[in-house]
Design a protein around this nucleic acid. Sequence first.
DNA 1: CTTCCAGCCTTTT
DNA 2: AAAAGGCTGGAAG
Length: 186
Amino acid sequence: MPATTHRSTRRITPHTARYAEPLRYSIAPCPLGYLLLAASAKGICAVLMGDTPHAVQVELQQRFAEAVLQVDDAGLSEDVQQVVRQLNDPLRPAQLPLDIRGSAFQQQVWQALLHIPCGQTRTYSELAAPLGSHPRAVASACARNPLGVLVPCHRVIARNGALSGYRWGLQRKAALLKGEADAQAQ
DNA sequence: CTTCCAGCCTTTT
DNA sequence: AAAAGGCTGGAAG
C-alpha cells in the first residue's frame, strides 16, 4: 500500500471526547461500597465503585470531563437496582443497554470480557493471544474499563493464579469473584 | 518457592 | 518522545 494514497496514522477520536454531552447519573450504596451508574442517550456508559459518594462522583467527572453531568436518581433507580441485584445474585446478570466507549483495541478487549461466563476466569494472556496482542496491553485496557461489574474485568487474573490488580480495589475483585464462584457452586 | 529483569502492546502526558 | 501500566517467562537466589 503506497503511503501516498492513504494516511494510516489518522487519529481516532478518543472515547469520552464528546462536547458538552449530557449524562445522567445516580449514586447509591451497594454491598461493595457506593455505586455510581451513568447513562447517555444510548445506554449505560459507566458503573463505578468507591468508598464514598464523593469518590465515585469525582471519578465520573475525571472520566467524562467534557460532559454535563446531572443527577437523575428517579430515572435511573431501576437500572441501579438491576446492578445491585446482580451483585447479590450473580447468576441473574443485569440486562441493560450499554454505551461502551473506548479505542478500537479497548472495544475488542471489553467485548471479549462480555463472553466470560459468570463463575469463570481468564488470564490476561489468554485474552491477548487471539487479538495478537500482549497481556500487558490487555491489562491496561481492563484497567480503563468504565463499566465495572457489567463488563466483567474482574474475571481476568494473572497466569499464576494471582488476582493481579483491580481498578476499584483488589478487595472488591476478590468479593466479586467469590460471590460468583459461590453462586455457581449452588 | 520467591525475586529480579528484560521485553512486551497501548494509552497517556 | 517518554513513561507507565491490573503481565510474563526465564534466570538467579
